[in-house]
Nucleic acid binder design. Structure first.
Length: 592
RNA sequence: GCGCCCGUAGCUCAGCUGGAUAGAGCAGCGGACUUCUAAUCCGCAGGUCACAGGUUCGAAUCCUGUCGGGCGUACCA
């Protein structure tokens, strides 16, 4: 058959799960396009293909013999029950649940979260943080060398605001009592003074008065920022004093979200390099002066990428370029992934294009590196507008987490008798896992490219496609093991050593087995489009097939091989669901 | 103006490198707890996939156009 070797992967892509079990487990659609090119009838081609497959011992070891093509030329296959059982047994005995580490791992840098210090974290940060963390965990689990870096905004105008506020309206007592809160207050106050709309200002007498007393506040704030950047001793000292306070505040939220970074190299870290970036780009002819500023003019771009303002200050494009070069030089990654909202897509397009053609020290590395902007949509309120409080402020991230946990706690408190035995500490841990899990899961289960409507009522429904549904399924597995006094480790060793101990009879056992063995394929799909929702969709399916299984088929009361089979399936499903949720950064309580 | 993204069930969304009757959840209706956690399960009902063309054996998916929405578009990040 004249098919070029490099076409094979594409053809194999045309094997997928069937839409309906009556067509078998998998279907291949490759006969139709291939037949067209070879100018033969699709069904004839499919017939030949089937004959060869049926003759191949490798094929028949795993699949039932194929009877013939269906419809225009579909080739439908069904996995042999004994082969499926062997797969379950093998996964049971494997710490990685049957997922082989990648043969060719890459070094991948992930850039996500990146809050501005000194500004309270708000809903706007949740998507980048949660999606980035999940992708980092998934890529790492697959076997890649992952480097996570939190590119903190620690050098921008917001510090000018805080410095100005510090000098004009600080309250020392408040700062002594709670520095974070006072700095937060100063930031919010000065931001209003500087760029609030008239109606917003009217609603805040303190800010209004301050604005009236300092009509030049906006300019003065920029001046404070500029002084900091120029190395002014007083501002620099204050910056050094404020930074740990701000970092601590952010760290507390990350701890609650179970998020850790390998590095936190903020904008300030790259600040000494910025001058060189501009000189370099000018020298290479990529950047030139225009209207007093310096920008990179790219073909097909209406506007330049500005790297230095007319007043001499650098911009975030400058920092981004410096950062890319630094990472290329020091980490030599194959890929850098930026998990940043979709509004910055043009910015990244320009930054990436500039970096690729930039002839700096790391030029070779830069040219070979894959730079990816992983964009996501805006978080909206239930009114379909950007998520704000009733007063019109952005919603603080911490308050959001509190509310999620609080609502979850109310639900944990009521209902099922099994929960009545839990002590206070357990309930609290469950509420935290369910509440935070719900918030993370709601975000991750949405296709990241679209805007998403934030609704506690929906995410804490605790039915349907929510974190709690999966957590509950795991708790049920734990319940079986606990109630039955099962030594799970021994069970795993037993079935791994003797796969014939597993025998799939009931269609629900079969469906569960087919589903639970898909983890590796699903993670591969997640990586190909950087979409965690592929993982959540599968977890939901898996938990669903487990719930049906659990509901209809007794496990502990079964006997002999049937009992072993069901125990093995339950154990494997529990572990797999737990692993999947952990890859999303979601905690899984043993009991709930 | 130009560029990017998006219009799928009453609501919130999957599905988008073309595949068989378009899927979930919620809401609605009807069933299932003396039996391993009912935060569950089983069933019913509900859609001209914005619209119009085109490519194809086959289109929610690819191409073109129209309408509607969001975002971005020179010195914020």
């Amino acid at each position: 058959m004249p098919v070029a070797a490099d076409e094979v992967p594409g053809l194999l892509e045309q094997v997928r799960e069937t839409a309906d079990p009556k067509f078998g487990d998998y279907t291949a659609t490759l006969a139709m396009p291939l037949a067209k090119r070879l100018r033969v009838k699709p069904r004839d081609l499919a017939e030949k293909l089937i004959a060869r497959l049926n003759d191949s011992p490798d094929f028949t070891a795993v699949f039932e013999p194929i009877e013939g093509p269906v419809g225009p030329g579909f080739v439908n296959v069904r996995v042999r029950d004994d082969a499926l059982a062997r797969g379950v047994a093998a996964a049971c005995g494997d710490a990685r649940l049957g997922v082989l580490p990648l043969a060719q791992p890459e070094t991948i840098v992930l850039d996500y979260s990146s809050p501005n210090v000194a500004k309270p974290m708000h809903v706007g940060h949740i998507r980048s943080t949660v999606i980035g963390d999940a992708l980092a965990r998934i890529l790492r689990f697959r076997g890649h060398r992952v480097i996570t870096d939190n590119h903190l905004g620690d050098w921008g105008t917001q510090f000018g605001m805080i410095l100005w506020g510090w000098k004009h309206c600080r309250e020392d007592a408040a700062y002594a009592a709670d520095p974070t809160a006072e700095l937060g207050r100063l930031y919010r106050l000065v931001r209003k003074v500087v760029d609030a709309k008239p109606e917003e200002l009217a609603a805040d007498p303190v800010a209004k008065e301050l604005a009236a007393a300092h009509p030049e506040a906006g300019r003065e704030v920029l001046l404070e920022t500029a002084k900091l950047h120029e190395g002014d001793a007083e501002n620099r000292k204050l910056w050094e004093e404020f930074m740990p306070v701000c970092r601590q505040e952010i760290e507390r939220i990350y701890q609650r979200l179970d998020i850790e970074f390998d590095h936190t190299l903020g904008e300030s870290f790259f600040q000494p390099l910025l001058h060189g970036v501009v000189e370099d780009l000018q020298a290479s002819g990529l950047a030139r002066e225009s209207r007093g500023a310096i920008g990179v003019f790219l073909d097909g771009q209406e506007t330049p990428l500005l790297i230095r303002k007319a007043d001499g200050a650098f911009l975030y494009a400058t920092t981004d370029l410096a950062t890319i070069a630094w990472r290329a030089e020091h980490w030599r990654p194959d890929r850098i992934l930026y998990i940043v909202d979709h509004r910055q897509s043009q910015h990244f397009q320009q930054v990436f294009a500039t970096a690729r053609s930039w002839g700096c020290r790391a030029a070779k590395q830069l040219a070979a590196m894959e730079l990816v902007h992983i964009a996501f949509g805006t978080v909206l309120g239930e009114d379909g507008k950007p998520f704000k409080t009733r007063a019109g402020d952005t919603v603080g991230l911490e308050a959001l987490l509190d509310e999620g946990v609080e609502r979850a706690a109310a639900i944990v408190g009521e209902g099922e008798h099994a929960r009545q035995g839990m002590d206070e500490a357990q309930r609290k841990a469950v509420a935290e896992a369910v509440g935070i899990g719900a918030i993370k899961y709601a975000d991750l289960s949405q296709n990241r490219t679209t805007d998403y409507v934030f609704s506690f009522d929906k995410m804490l429904e605790l039915k349907g496609n929510t974190a709690a549904y999966m957590q509950y399924a795991v708790a049920r597995v734990e319940g079986i093991a606990g109630r039955g006094g099962i030594d799970r480790e021994a069970l795993r060793q037993q079935v791994a050593a003797d796969p014939t101990a597993v025998e799939l009879v009931d269609p629900r056992e079969r469906r569960l087995a087919l589903n639970v063995l898909r983890l590796a394929a699903v993670l591969e799909d997640v990586e190909s489009d950087y979409r965690p929702n592929v993982l959540t969709a599968w977890l939901f399916e898996l938990a669903g097939s487990f719930s049906s299984f659990y509901d209809a088929l007794p496990v502990l009361k079964a006997e002999g091989r049937q009992r072993t089979t069901r125990l093995a399936l339950a154990d494997l499903t529990g572990r797999t669901l737990r692993q999947g949720l952990e890859l999303l950064g979601i905690r899984v309580p043993k009991q709930m």
